[in-house]
Amino acid sequence: MDAGGEEAKQERHLVLAHKLFLLSHPDLDDLAKVALRSDALDAVKSDGMAPLFESLAAAGVLEPDDALLAEMRARIDEEVRKLDEKIADAEENLGESEVREAHLAKSLYFMRVGEKEKALEQLKVTEGKTVAVGQKMDLVFYTLQIGLFYMDFDLISKSIDKAKNLFEEGGDWERKNRLKVYEGLYFMATRNFKKAASLFLDSISTFTTYELFPYDTFVFYTVITSIITLDRVSLKQKVVDAPEILAVIGKVPHLSEFLNSLYNCQYKSFFVAFSGMTEQIKLDRYLQPHFRYYMREVRTVVYSQFLESYKSVTMEAMAAAFGVTVDFIDQELSRFIAAGKLHCKIDKVAGVLETNRPDARNAFYQATIKQGDFLLNRIQKLSRVIDL
């Protein structure tokens, strides 16, 4: 797939949102921020985003420029006047579909210049002029894009619920599949990685939401959410061997090694790839707030997988397998054991790890006994009633 072509289709305000996120990132060097600042200013100027320019200037992200701000505001006023004239003309002289199109044009213009509240208000007006379910869904997608630009999770959640209600009236598969990716992104951004992985995996072969991100970014999200939520068998079937993922996984640095070394139990390679992945996760707008949580979850998965094979193992052997020191393993495992994430104990004197994971078969047996007792009690009570 042509990544460059996909990049061109990405909604430009979401590209801008990512650049603004990077500008506020403490880990990015000043030289990179100079180029980003220039790109952001060009994007804001080309779309005449007066409200955004004003807030960025007030925050010290961009240099204040009163003349530029006044010029952008004048341009907005003039354009809104023209759009209102077109709406009035359509209402007087044309049909319902032309009236709707004129209102939609005004909604899209408010979106373009970054007038969030006016855009949402105008989209509601446009919805009132819209009959077809598919067109109503398209309005919801516009609202979701506004929500993603501002990271307004309340707006995103309500819009997804609204879209699902619309689908009960009808709607085509293409839009339903697009909604899955929007919903998956929402779940990932709100730390529900299990639901995100499920929705992303459902969308691998039907992905068309290039307005959100290119396909290789989608595969990146799919792999990293799957690694911490799927068991080994499911990971192999749905991710490791998935032809759609295999076709593009090489485009994302370290991702193939990250996935395959984990599945193939090559722990030294995994830790090398893992350190390479941390930068990408940290510099991702949707994942960065969950960086520390994700790092913990991945380590839990990999340590659990290693310990699964042993009743007991020396700490030296584990440290050698991971290519780290015994002290590092000691500190790491102590934290995870204390948090209840790993089922093992450390024999510090012998330098041995002993696993004490719950026995699933025994737990099932105990549950069956408990349910059997409950059933017998119910039968005894029932027999007393019948005897009477």
Rank of each mutant, 00 (worst) to 15 (best):
L201N: 15
E92Q: 13
A363P: 05
K370Q: 14
N264P: 05
A3L: 07
R361Q: 10
T130N: 01
D231E: 14
K236S: 10
F167G: 01
Y310P: 02
Y182C: 03
L23T: 00
A70Y: 13
L36A: 11
Y210A: 06
M151G: 00
R296W: 06
T278G: 08
D231S: 04
Q280I: 12
I337D: 08
D154V: 10
K116W: 11
M72V: 06
P64F: 12
Q305C: 02
I146M: 03
R384V: 02
F270M: 08
H18D: 15
E354D: 07
H103M: 14
V302I: 14
V313R: 06
R232N: 09
N93C: 02
V181D: 00
Y210R: 04
D330A: 09
Q145N: 14
T300N: 13
I281W: 12
K345S: 08
F110C: 03
L68E: 15
F271R: 05
Y109Q: 11
F193Y: 14
R75H: 07
E98S: 13
F193E: 10
A360Q: 15
E183S: 02
S55G: 03
A189V: 02
F200Y: 12
E244F: 04
S312V: 04
K106C: 08
V80W: 13
E169F: 09
V385C: 05
V272W: 05
M315A: 08
T314Q: 04
L148S: 06
G4C: 01
L139K: 01
L307V: 11
L212M: 10
S334L: 02
L83T: 06
K370V: 09
D172T: 01
T208E: 15
P243I: 07
M111P: 00
L262V: 11
Y109M: 01
V252A: 11
E6G: 07
E211D: 15
R75L: 10
Q280G: 11
L144C: 03
N264C: 06
S38D: 11
K82Y: 11
V99I: 15
L287T: 03
E92M: 10
R361M: 09
F200C: 03
L287N: 03
K370N: 13
N362Y: 14
Y294S: 04
T225Q: 04
S203A: 15
F21T: 02
D27A: 08
F200I: 07
I329R: 00
N260F: 06
L388E: 05
A367D: 14
S234Q: 14
A273Y: 08
Q145V: 05
V125K: 12
V302F: 05
E54D: 08
P64H: 07
G170F: 15
A367G: 07
A338L: 02
F258V: 05
D359G: 00
S269E: 15
S159Q: 01
F213H: 04
G351Y: 07
S256P: 00
V240K: 00
S97M: 05
L31R: 10
Y365G: 06
F336H: 12
S261M: 04
